[in-house]
Design a protein around this nucleic acid. Structure first.
Lengths: 225, 225
DNA sequence: AGAAATCTTCACAGAATGTTCACTTTTGAA
DNA sequence: TTCAAAAGTGAACATTCTGTGAAGATTTCT
């Protein structure tokens, strides 16, 4: 999950934001002024920074500018109404959104979600989502698979597994890797689970099961041009 | 470069948008109400109008309608969520996009870019607004749905949901995605809410419920040619 | 305000899917 | 060819998911 840096000199604000953010499943780190934030960003890569404008030592603007010299991390600014409102927008780049104090944590979280999503989509642009291998068509966007022109109905896991295999075609995938990527990092089940699903997937693919290669001692691979 | 007209009664909003727009290299003109906008459009040709809905003298809708009597200029509307949200979709023509306040300037600029690009392609037909699937007709612009020729009356949410599904036909849509896009990013409700509305929508569609496919473990999809 | 319409939540039943596990079959190295 | 390890498989059992109706909350209309 995303790692968020919260920068504010008021401990109470940090606390509230942290609680909400952690509830949403984000990892959270705190800093109490701009200087600290800059230093933290030097060492670590955050996915998003929530930063107050007014802070001792180094204010939000300057910190933001400094951080963006080396890293391209989206920033949500917190500002008191009126006060600094204006300047904020003149800010050249890097501020993705702003929230006026006092803010509702819920809304802030909504903004966080939007900004993170926007920035994650950025590098997904060219993701291909339709593949054809002989009589096997895989439509990832539509979550559909056609076998010789006929729609194949599969279970969610079969789809997920197939999509992952296809997206990584011609690459050897270990069972552990499959479990982690398809089932999720928090799945602690048996290795054989993969085998069972591969079995079912193969059945669903009919003759095109031939694309799924067993790599003895390792895992599986989707092999096709 | 493109010339943009910004229409809003709040000077701060205009200022903010102007700064971002100029940073992107656009030429900017401001107007503080619909009447002023109409007059300006009389004299000059803009490439795009960014217009608030709520304004003194002449509101955004009316101004938009008036301007479109003589010129075909793309418009991005700014509206507060809820408030005027609904009407916007019903708006006959000319509104190319809408952005809900409070908005992130960056996002607005992204929309601007998209709209300008869309309109620069001469032969690019505007977003499709009328869909027919067998006996099911969906008129998004007119905010009407016909089932076997008979107008179906549905609740606002049903329309919104159907329209979103149709606009994204043949694409798998997760509940989260639906909540975010149809309900809004600030909706923090239950996932099951989607199910319930799907249920009602299905009832409203009669036999054409068949177009709405359940994607187990994911969400739904409108499936049709 | 009061009524009507719409939206949201919730819990439950039934259905669909996922996981485990014991057993069989295959594989590849010695 | 033999044998141990790895992979395939079927079925029992566990878990998760969706459809649904109804109650309560909220919004809109009169």
């Amino acid at each position: 999950m995303a790692h968020i840096l919260i920068v504010d000199d008021e401990v109470n604000i940090r606390k509230v934001v942290r609680e909400y953010a952690e509830f949403e499943g984000y990892e959270v780190t705190e800093a109490e002024n701009g200087m600290e934030a800059v230093n933290l960003c030097h060492d670590k890569d955050f996915d998003l920074i929530i930063m107050d404008v007014m802070m001792p030592r180094l204010d939000g603007y300057s910190a933001c500018k400094e951080i963006h010299k080396t890293k391209n991390i989206p920033v949500i600014m917190l500002s008191a109404r009126g006060e600094e409102y204006d300047k904020l927008f003149g800010f050249e780049i890097g501020v993705d959104d702003y929230v006026v104090k006092p803010f509702s944590p819920k809304e802030l979280m909504a903004r966080v979600k939007v900004v993170l999503k926007r920035n994650s989509n950025a590098d997904n642009t060219a993701a291909q989502n339709r593949y054809v291998f002989e009589g096997l068509e895989v439509d990832i966007a539509g979550r559909e698979v056609y076998v010789d022109g006929k729609k194949a109905s599969m279970t969610p896991k079969e789809y997920d597994l197939l999509f992952y295999l296809v997206r990584n075609k011609n690459i050897a995938l270990s069972r552990d890797q499959l479990l982690e990527e398809v089932w999720g990092y928090d799945f602690f089940g048996d290795d054989r689970t993969v085998d069972t699903h591969i079995k079912m997937l193969r059945n669903s693919l009919g003759d095109y099961r031939k694309f799924i290669i067993t790599l003895r001692g390792v895992g599986y691979k989707f092999e096709a041009n």
